[in-house]
């Protein structure tokens, strides 16, 4: 049964992909991209990657779509017909695809439990992490502890994106609240936004702190948190949202998250451990791991939420 769902979803993804190639309206393409994300997120659930599904849904269908829509709004909606025939690109793509298909011929079968990928490092993560780290969600323990350094890199990447958007688009704090006037009429939207806003924030907190036991963690929580504020900004105007969380505060928070993460690493160094060795943070190694994971997830959540908002503010406050 799962296989059937898997196949159908892959087929739908393929149709969506081809439609994206052909479609000329960029807003339409954006919608299709959002559908593509949703479908792949469902596929991730079928393939047991619940954490990834959560992230893909929050990013692809949420933030990325919003950014693409904002960009289309700032530029143009229609794609011009290409001037030259795409023969060379077609050849390159065919060659690359053929190479990859050639490579699949010696691969272990899909889902094969004896494949080398499952037998070595991953296997011991599944067996040892409950003892060494004591967190039921193995994805969280690998992400935050075994490969915690990658995650520091990931936070830095997203921080770089914020610095980039700030440099490219900047943001202006609005003196007058222009949009609010136009929105006042839309009662339904405002009521729903008011209802949803606290719910989303509450849910973000749940995802943040429940990440050890179920799907979730700092990154997903940060995105959901930011989405809550984006909803608020959409319903009540950017100016109102900026009064709630000023741009300057976001800048400080974005930096603070990275610094919290790095500080945990340096602190464990000062306590006599290696960089990011959480077990020295408390008397009991397991408690130390828990504390470390909690702190760095907090850092991740803070940076991600504020970076998403910085990026959103950047795009939306831009005018011609």
């Amino acid at each position: 049964m799962e296989n059937l769902i898997n196949d159908v979803l892959l087929g739908l993804l393929m149709i969506t992909g081809f439609a994206i190639v052909r479609m000329k309206s960029l807003l339409g393409v954006t919608m299709l991209t959002s559908i593509y994300s949703l479908l792949s997120a469902s596929l991730f659930v079928v393939l047991d990657a619940v954490d990834v599904a959560l992230t893909e849904a929050a990013i692809g269908a949420g933030i990325a779509t919003v950014l693409m829509v904002a960009t289309v709004a700032l530029t143009t909606d229609e794609e011009k017909v290409p001037r030259h025939t795409p023969l060379l690109p077609l050849l390159v793509v065919m060659a690359t695809g053929a190479a990859l298909i050639y490579g699949t011929l010696d691969m272990p079968h899909h889902g094969d439990p004896l494949a080398p990928a499952h037998r070595y490092v991953a296997d011991s993560y599944l067996h040892d992490s409950p003892v060494e780290i004591g967190v039921p969600n193995v994805v969280t323990s690998v992400l935050a502890s075994y490969r915690g350094y990658d995650t520091l890199g990931e936070v830095t990447v997203i921080f770089t994106a914020a610095a980039g958007v700030l440099a490219l688009l900047g943001y202006r704090t609005r003196g007058r609240n222009i949009e609010a006037a136009g929105i006042r009429k839309q009662v339904v939207l405002r009521v729903i936004a008011k209802l949803f806003f606290p719910l989303i924030l509450l849910f973000a907190l749940y995802v943040q702190f429940h990440g050890d036991y179920g799907p979730g963690g700092g990154f997903q929580a940060g995105v959901i948190f930011a989405t809550g504020f984006i909803l608020y900004a959409l319903a009540f105007g950017l100016g109102t949202a900026q009064r709630l969380i000023p741009s300057q505060l976001l800048r400080i928070l974005a930096a603070a998250g990275v610094l919290i993460y790095a500080a945990v690493g340096l602190e464990s160094m000062l306590l006599g451990g290696k960089f990011l060795e959480y077990r020295v943070l408390a008397d009991d190694p397991i408690a130390g791991q828990h504390l470390g994971i909690l702190l760095i997830e907090l850092g991740v959540g803070i940076t991600v939420a504020s970076v998403m908002l910085i990026i959103y503010y950047g795009f939306v406050s831009r005018r011609h």
Partner: peptide
């Protein structure tokens, strides 16, 4: 895993609104 479903509910609404 209903958690994930909940995220979808909350988030898909926002991108529709943005468009």
């Amino acid at each position: 895993f209903l958690d994930i479903a909940l995220v979808y509910v909350l988030i898909s609404f926002v991108s529709t609104l943005a468009v």
